[in-house]
């Protein structure tokens, strides 16, 4: 157990962090270079004001027509994204582990709060799963990878919840929790989850096109 724990909480953390960080930088730079080579006009058309205007509208709940048309989805999507980032970053247990390893720490949320956020993430994933199966227009677009990605996102939260509440087999779950978190982190730059990196750019670019050239809203 010691060796497994040491491995997943030691070198594996580094491996996943490096894949995540280097992956993000690589994806970003390679895309920027490809754009420079193939679509150099993208740089000319980027308009910071209109890009930020568009990003702001789409990061505001109910800030776009489509969000108002799908209120349930909007609420779930926003709570999901807020929780999926806040809960792990500001979880007390994570803060302690990081303090122990790197002697840095920051603000943390209460465990009750973390519990609620974790349940929100899990419930959102269930919602996304059901929506994917039930709604024909989503089902039509769905491939196996969509389910795999959804499972990858849900896994660290389910196992984390399990471990925290010390349900049966929580030691093994703890190990799986750490591993699944690392897998998720490493997968971000190379899957559809890369929208984390590219959202501001794709949104900003279309905001620039709509705003600066076409003088129209895009929300």
């Amino acid at each position: 157990m010691h060796d497994i724990y040491d491995f997943v909480s030691g070198p594996m953390v580094w491996v996943s962090l490096i894949i995540f960080a280097a992956g993000c930088i690589y994806r970003f730079i390679s895309m920027a270079l490809l754009a420079k080579e193939k679509d150099p006009f993208l740089y000319n058309y980027m308009s910071p004001y209109h890009a930020l205007r568009s990003i702001f509208h789409w990061l505001t709940p109910f800030g776009s027509e489509n969000m108002r048309k799908n209120p349930v989805f909007t609420i779930v999507a926003f709570s999901f994204h807020i929780c999926v980032v806040i809960a792990p970053l500001f979880l007390f247990a994570h803060i302690i582990l990081i303090k122990q390893s790197w002697n840095v720490s920051w603000w943390f949320i209460s465990d009750t709060m973390a519990d609620i956020m974790t349940l929100i993430v899990i419930a959102s994933c269930v919602f996304f799963l059901i929506r994917r199966i039930v709604r024909p227009e989503v089902k039509f677009l769905t491939s196996a990878s969509d389910y795999i990605i959804l499972a990858m996102v849900a896994a660290p939260f389910i196992t984390g919840f399990w471990t925290y509440h010390q349900f049966a087999g929580c030691r093994i779950m703890g190990i799986i929790h750490i591993l699944s978190g690392e897998i998720l982190l490493a997968a971000i730059p190379f899957t559809r989850l890369s929208h984390m990196i590219f959202f501001p750019i794709s949104r900003g670019y279309i905001g620039s096109e709509f705003g600066a050239i076409r003088h129209a809203k895009d929300w």
Binding site: M31, A32, L34, A35, E37, K38, D39, L42, N66, N70, F73, R135, E137, V138, F140, L141, T142, S143, D146, R192, S194, H195, F198, F199, I201, S202, Y205
Partner: peptide
């Protein structure tokens, strides 16, 4: 011709159907 835009758009589409 299929540069960064085509690649990014296909890569990030979350298949959400919205």
């Amino acid at each position: 011709e299929g540069g960064a835009r085509l690649k990014t758009y296909v890569d990030i589409c979350a298949h959400c159907g919205l």
